[in-house]
Design a protein around this nucleic acid. Structure first.
Ligand SMILES: [Mn+2]
Ligand SMILES: [Mn+2]
Ligand SMILES: [Zn+2]
Ligand SMILES: [Zn+2]
Lengths: 143, 143
DNA sequence: TTGACAAATGCAACTATGTTGCATTATTAT
DNA sequence: ATAATAATGCAACATAGTTGCATTTGTCAA
């Protein structure tokens, strides 16, 4: 079962349209399988001679977020990153210099984080606890 | 031993000047003991009839970062937050709606994170690994 | 195949946050 | 008090993202 087709079906079932730009953006997310910025999406489309306006890019991002197809990440930068939402829970290792990114994951760490989230629920007035954990460093090229 | 005086001494020892604005900003960081934005610093100074230009605020932040007196944090927002650098390693619980912030800490979690950082050093080309871990939720008022 | 209708887009103008170059002012040591 | 230089103010600029509104496009049903 093709992941992009299953996303298309989801959109159609809600009555949303499958435009050329939307399909390209969805497939870009699937192919990259890594966090990308709005600007990177624009550049990718531009190379394929598809000139979507930046407003449209941001509206697509908002739309895909709303439908839980992508997720938003905030690294040390001011700009937001987005990646396709998959079932595997993972975090990132980001180069402080060039933003090259790798996935990282640890079952032991997730267990500890879940414990922490339970403690927070019990010990504070906050509800709906989520977390963001990212690692930063210098990649080989940037050392 | 007064913490603000020890910071003043450090600055003087490097030959930097103790201006009215700089002292107020340092003391604001010490008093608040929580992450604040550039804009919050401006507002604080404005209330005390000290109108430092925004350029000056940003240059002070850069300066205090350079000297490791404050640290920079990035939550889910586009804007950066800054807090006084203390010896206690901690993370934050931030309200997604109003940005109200509490400190959180867990020795067990830090141990697990350190293990992860060692694994990353061993298993990737990255060096100088750091981490950012923040929790998000909805505070009492915003639920 | 063609309308009709809603969804999606383009555009201009705008906002928020932060940065740069350069002339002027304030702090410090002597 | 003076000289040296750190710090500031200002205008202009940069980047990332947002909003209102007119126009275009995709879809479904006739
Ligand atoms: Mn996690
Ligand atoms: Mn930590
Ligand atoms: Zn790099
Ligand atoms: Zn709140």
């Amino acid at each position: 079962m093709n992941i992009s087709v299953s996303i298309y079906d989801k959109l159609k079932s809600y009555g949303f349209k499958l435009t050329r730009g939307r399909k390209l953006i969805i497939n870009f997310f699937i192919d990259r399988n890594q966090p990308v910025s709005a600007m990177e999406i624009m550049d990718f489309l531009h190379k394929r001679k598809i000139n979507l306006h930046k407003t449209t890019i941001y509206r697509q991002l908002e739309f895909l977020l709303e439908l839980n197809i992508i997720r938003q990440l905030q690294f040390a930068d001011r700009k937001k990153m987005y990646e396709i939402r998959t079932s595997d829970h993972h975090h990132h290792l980001v180069c402080k210099n060039c933003q090259k990114t790798e996935k990282v994951a640890s079952a032991a760490l997730e267990t500890e984080i879940q414990t922490m989230e339970k403690d927070i629920l019990a010990g504070s007035d906050f509800k709906n606890i989520r977390h963001s954990l990212e690692f930063f460093g210098l990649c080989r090229q940037c050392q």
